[in-house]
Nucleic acid binder design. Structure first.
Lengths: 125, 125
DNA sequence: AATAAATTTAGAATAATTCTAAATTGGTGT
DNA sequence: ACACCAATTTAGAATTATTCTAAATTTATT
């Protein structure tokens, strides 16, 4: 594990904000001002392959990186805001239903956040 | 609903192959040879906003479009191959656990497909 | 120290998607 | 049928995220 990989893992693991590569890049430069963006992508891909971080893709947004600790996500359909939520570990239940063994699963609930619900109501939609 | 929107909805609804915008574009041109790609994106976004089609994003791949009929997905961690699987409707269970009402949910199981498992074994990983 | 292997760098390249502004189309009401 | 307004389409440029390439640097190995 290289110094960049280590630090990037630290940044992503500590964050609860689903950072983009750019944001991670910015955070990493606080410590290593000369690092380049390609290095961030290299390391993120490596860490992801090694199952040390998660990738979260929300349609139409840049990929986000997330700590590995299991949890689920809540995405607002309208504004795309992404929140953590924990619905417990469904692995056993899902494996049983699917009849295969899985490495992991991603569960994303789509809803309307409070702000967007208000806006929607105002417009009478 | 315009003629393009209608046809695009038809194409996506009939397909079980999680088409990309480019693939949908190609299919649409069979019927309307002069249509441009931007129109495909416009319509896909519209149809998605109206909940007539689904968007599926797999990390590192272009967005794919899917029929709305509920079903889940199986993604190979190594090669990215995307398959349909149906684990039944978990909406009620998830809403109860989450304590909110949701519009929909996306469930993606990550596994190693047979081909990739074989390759992995061969390499002793 | 010498060699090999992995990582980083710089910057170009690619690919997906969005944006802009003009042109076209599809109703609506008269 | 005609004028009007809104929505859609078009063409092509622009943007953004990400990957790629080849050289340089760092790290580990003999």
């Amino acid at each position: 594990m290289t110094k960049y990989g280590k630090k990037i893992l630290e940044i992503v693991s500590a964050s609860h904000s689903h950072m983009t590569a750019e944001e991670i890049f910015a955070a990493l430069r606080q410590t290593y001002p000369t690092v380049v963006l390609a290095t961030v992508y290299n390391n993120l891909n490596r860490l992801w392959q090694e199952d040390l971080i998660r990738k979260v893709s929300v349609e139409g947004m840049p990929d986000r990186y997330d700590r590995i600790q299991r949890h689920d996500h809540l995405v607002c359909k309208r504004c795309g805001k992404l929140l953590d939520i924990d619905l417990g570990d469904l692995t056993a239940q899902l494996e049983k239903k699917a009849g295969i063994s899985i490495l992991s699963y991603d569960l994303k609930l789509t809803y309307l956040c409070d702000d967007c619900r208000k806006k929607t109501e105002r417009k009478g939609m």
